[in-house]
Measured scan of single mutants.
Amino acid sequence: LPHTAVCLVCGEAGKEDTVEEEEGKFNLMLMECSICNEIIHPGCLKIKESEGVVNDELPNCWECPKC
């Protein structure tokens, strides 16, 4: 993702460097949905019932829970 990318919900950049544990890092890193192209911190999504499908081949790419 470009350095200028920010979260659609909170308007902040990736914050994964501020935590140690892997789950915390994931919730604070910016992810781009391969379907709707929205860039968001997974932790900013209010959807709890399902998780997005992470694409292991492309960094910061997933199918968000909304899609």
Rank of each mutant, 00 (worst) to 15 (best):
G43F: 02
V9M: 10
E49W: 06
G11V: 00
T18G: 04
E16Q: 12
V19D: 03
V53Y: 02
C10N: 06
E63V: 12
H3A: 11
A5C: 13
C61N: 02
I47T: 13
C61P: 10
D56H: 15
E22M: 14
S34V: 10
G14N: 11
E23K: 14
D17N: 11
M29E: 04
G24S: 14
G11H: 04
C36T: 00
L1G: 09
E38A: 04
A13D: 08
E12M: 13
I39V: 12
K25Y: 01
V54K: 09
M29S: 12
M31C: 06
V53G: 10
I35E: 04
A5T: 14
V54Q: 14
A13I: 14
V19R: 13
K15Q: 04
E20M: 14
I39W: 08
N37G: 13
C64Y: 01
I40V: 15
W62I: 00
A13C: 05
C61H: 15
L28F: 13
N27E: 11
G11Q: 14
K15E: 07
E57H: 11
I35G: 08
G52F: 11
D56F: 12
C7Y: 00
I47P: 11
V53L: 09
T18P: 06
G43M: 14
E38P: 01
V6S: 09
K66V: 07
C10W: 00
L28R: 08
A5Q: 09
F26R: 11
E22T: 14
F26A: 07
H3M: 15
V54A: 13
W62N: 03
V9C: 01
C64D: 01
E63M: 11
V19E: 03
G52N: 09
C44V: 00
M31L: 10
E21C: 10
K46G: 14
G52S: 08
T4E: 03
S50P: 13
E21V: 13
E51I: 07
I39M: 14
K15M: 14
S34E: 03
E63W: 04
S50W: 08
P59W: 05
T4L: 00
C67A: 01
V54D: 09
K15V: 03
V54G: 07
E23M: 09
E49Q: 10
L30A: 04
E38C: 05
E57Y: 07
G24C: 04
W62P: 08
G14V: 08
P59M: 07
C36V: 00
E32N: 15
P59Y: 02
H41C: 01
L58I: 08
L58S: 13
E63F: 04
L45A: 06
S50M: 08
C67K: 02
N27V: 03
H41W: 00
E57G: 10
E49P: 12
S50H: 07
C33D: 01
E21H: 15
L1T: 12
E16T: 14
P2R: 15
A5Y: 15
T18K: 08
P2D: 15
E57Q: 09
E22Y: 05
P59D: 04
E38N: 04
E20I: 02
E12F: 01
V53M: 10
K48H: 09
V19K: 06
G11P: 02
K25H: 05
E21M: 10
M31G: 03
N55H: 13
V9E: 10
E63D: 15
P65L: 02
P2L: 15
L30E: 06
E12T: 12
W62L: 04
V9R: 05
